[in-house]
């Protein structure tokens, strides 16, 4: 009984102080995020979550690619970044379908000289981000 009580007290003290420290440490970040979220609408929050200009580029593609056309992506960067870009585009532009030889390509971080054969730029988001359309379509 006595041993159990001592054990409980020691356990509770360590758990509480360490846990409280971990919570308090995150309070400024938590408050900042809360404040930020109040200033943003849903689109702004999505933009914030994705970081950089990724969400704006995806919205740009959504506006410029007809819903019935197939899409794909070309990305210059590390493998993880490429995967992330692919999945993000798939997620946000669904129900547009992906295809190997798609009607449109979202080209991210590629120069005009690197555009694959059979495609041409159809809309420019900035100097290294384009929408490509299959030639002849």
């Amino acid at each position: 009984m006595f041993k159990g009580r001592v054990l409980l007290i020691i356990f509770s003290i360590i758990w509480f102080f360490w846990g409280a420290y971990l919570v308090v440490k995150d309070i400024p970040q938590s408050l900042e995020r809360g404040k930020l979220s109040l200033a943003l609408n849903l689109e702004g929050r999505r933009d914030y979550v994705l970081g950089g200009d990724l969400y704006s580029f995806i919205k740009f593609a959504e506006k410029n690619i007809p819903e019935d056309k197939t899409i794909n992506v070309i990305f210059r960067g590390d493998e993880f970044g490429a995967q992330l870009f692919y999945y993000r585009v798939y997620y946000y532009l669904y129900p547009r379908q992906f295809a190997k030889n798609a009607d449109y390509f979202l080209s991210y971080n590629l120069s005009l000289a690197e555009i694959p054969a059979g495609y041409k730029p159809v809309a420019e988001f900035d100097a290294h981000k384009y929408l490509l359309i299959k030639e002849g379509s």
Partner: peptide, 25 residues
């Protein structure tokens, strides 16, 4: 305190959007 971390923002963690979020859409 934990609410603003997640609740105030759209699905951001990988499985949250890439698996469940995508399927739910």
């Amino acid at each position: 305190l934990v609410l603003p971390h997640w609740y105030m923002f759209p699905l951001a963690a990988w499985d949250g959007w890439a698996i469940y979020g995508f399927k739910s859409k």
